[in-house]
Design a protein around this nucleic acid. Sequence first.
RNA 1: CGGGGCGUAGCGCAGCCUGGUAGCGCACUUGGUUCGGGACCAAGGGGUCGGAGGUUCAAAUCCUCUCGCCCCGACCA
Length: 565
Amino acid sequence: MYYSHLLIPTLKEPPADAEAVSHKLMVRAGFVRQLAAGLYIYLPLGQRVIEKINRIIREEMNAIGGQEVTMPVLNPAEVWQQTGRWDAIGDEMFRLKDRGGRDMCLAMTHEETMAWLAAHDLRSYRDLPQVWYQIQTKLRDEARPKSGVLRTREFIMKDSYSFDRDEAGLDVSYQRHLEAYKKIYTRCGIRFSVVQSDTGLMGGSQAHEFMAPSQAGEDDIAICDSCGYAANVELAESVPSQHKTHNWKFEEVATPEKRTIDEVTRFLKVTPDLLIKSILVITNDGPILALIRGDHMLHEKKLAKAIGQHRPAQKEEVKDILGVSAGFIGPMGHRIKKIADPCLKQGVYAAGANKEGFHLTGISAEKHFADAEFMDIHTAQAGDACTVCGKPIRIERVIEVGNIFKLGTKYSVPLKAYYLDENGAEKPIIMGSYGIGPARIAAAAVEQGNDENGIMWPLAIAPFHVQIIPVNAKDQQSLKVAEDLSAILEKKGFEVLVDDRDERAGVKFKDADLIGIPYRIVIGEKNLKEGMVEIKERKSGVVEKVVIADAPFAIEKKIHKEGGN
RNA sequence: CGGGGCGUAGCGCAGCCUGGUAGCGCACUUGGUUCGGGACCAAGGGGUCGGAGGUUCAAAUCCUCUCGCCCCGACCA
């Protein structure tokens, strides 16, 4: 393939509004262009990367018996109404009406339509198990698209769905997907962790996420290096580090205008872990006071699990309910229901006195708020002890590149996806759903593989395997050698990009570094006179001089060694 | 949804405070010199200054509204 025939609009400067490294590089190197917030155009190079990732996904999905299908993006409201998600999902779903005034939506996922199909065309236990998948566009009206291709409103997703007769069958389908996913990410050349995750909106009994470490990510995971425990902080459990006990008397201390943990900490000359953070939230059944240690963060989702839907109280509400302004509220002096983190059972603390301008010191759970309900509601943080082995955990920022869920009968029952077992009894099909975001794999690869000069693609998903640069494209002999080498390499099954542009060497080298094709053959006139060319590896920068005829074999050897594809 | 920032040539920006001729770098076109790490010289093309309304003799600049894009937050006590 000739460079001059391709649209590869590289830029010297990154777009001003790009923040994430992958975003900057994918735009600069001419892989993508942004059309509007969260809407991206894939240019030829970007398209090639996505297609390579998709090919790997297809191979691994087919290997576990997946059957590729295609669902409509435009969905009738009915199927979503049957599962209740038409109402459960808010503004994130694009909704529209057809010309007849019927409610429609653009699918953000396909549990409903897949279950609909299962309901219509799976009848007998003999039809099970099944795994159906598609690689197709999803639409989500994200509150805040960001980080380039990482969070967009329209994106391609590989989603698969398993249909089994019982939980044991689901376990098998789930495990197969888990293994297939590991292979997919490994083949794509990205680093990743498999972690336990929250089942959230999808419902179901068990879920894992596949997380690629990167600063550009939006999730944090807790990892224990000694026993292998790994979980999304959304549900990660941990034992907070013990703090030294402070022997202070039970007394009221005037703390005028000292409201925040930070202010009170400084005023009392203690560390934050000696304070109790009190957070008032409003549930459907009235206010609840959440109590956590001062150096901890409240975990919204854990709290939600304990008390159901809730929202933080407004400042005025705090005053109405507790009779004191936010900043001085605490566990004592009122009858509001309290949920406290278990780590507060030990130790003696200071907290708001529930009296304007005062805090209380010397508070202990046992003596002063034994009536609280104790539940894990803190967010795991680095240095906490692993609940499995007791060793310290670490927290890592990650990009979610895939997830798998055991759904059970959440979708099959409302959509009437039943089968008849051997005894003629009607039973609901047990489902699982499994997603991968190819664009996120690409972005994660860029996040994990780049240097100051540009991208360093993993071989398996690089837009081309080899870039050939005739330094002087006007020199007929250089071009001829480039063409010959390209033909030989292509015959061997490699993808080759020949930079035939009439540009100065520096421009070609800079662009090559930016685009990040793993191997480069440089054809210079001086070397050519000796019958030699250079082979350069993008990642290591190592240059090797070889005789022309050996170049294809040298490349082949390197590629086989790296084991791409 | 809350807060902040920004919309001027394809990209990156200046000009706006203090109204009066729309500018710079890169990219692009043509010619010449150069040619292994983003060359140089010369000559060019390209703009309804996001949009609408208003103030004014006069608006990129001032006022009002609106649209778009980006970032942070949605974990105070």
